[in-house]
């Protein structure tokens, strides 16, 4: 069981923004995180960026996972800005799916913590999300 140092499960939002509707990857990842002992908020596709910000805040999650298979990663910088504007800079954001190499650095520059490509293993994903959740918990205001 993977819980944070304080024994409390990491809380993760797994979602999709933009226009694409392929969700096999995000469903499998959500199940991985659940099976690793995390609490996962899972949404359908096509979330509006303000809705993702509202969910991130209301659910007080540690990590937001964005799945993108058809270029939706191109609007992730907009999401990053919106999260910062809402005072949620401590929340870690990861992107998974099809992201061309030449656009990975663009995501990192905009504050994305990690980009997972097809073929990433369960272990790799779970360990990275766990670690990022712990970082987020440390930076987050207590109340």
């Amino acid at each position: 069981m993977h819980a944070n140092g304080d024994g409390i499960p990491a809380k993760v939002l797994v979602t999709k923004i933009g226009l694409d509707g392929h969700d096999r990857g995000s469903r499998v990842v959500a199940a991985y995180l659940r099976d690793a002992g995390m609490e996962v908020i899972y949404t359908g596709p096509w979330q509006q960026i303000p809705a993702v910000v509202a969910l991130t805040q209301e659910e007080d999650v540690d990590v937001v996972g964005i799945s993108s298979l058809a270029t939706d990663h191109l609007i992730v910088p907009k999401l990053m800005r919106a999260l910062r504007d809402a005072g949620l800079a401590h929340v870690r954001v990861v992107v998974g799916g099809i992201v061309p190499d030449d656009e990975v650095s663009m995501l990192h520059e905009n504050g994305v913590s990690k980009v997972f490509h097809p073929g990433s293993s369960r272990e790799e994903i779970v360990a990275a999300v766990q670690q990022l959740a712990e970082q987020a918990r440390c930076e987050r205001p207590e109340i």
Partner: peptide, 10 residues
């Protein structure tokens, strides 16, 4: 009606 970044990419 959509984000211009996403137009014509797919």
């Amino acid at each position: 009606e959509v984000d211009i970044e996403l137009l014509g990419t797919c």
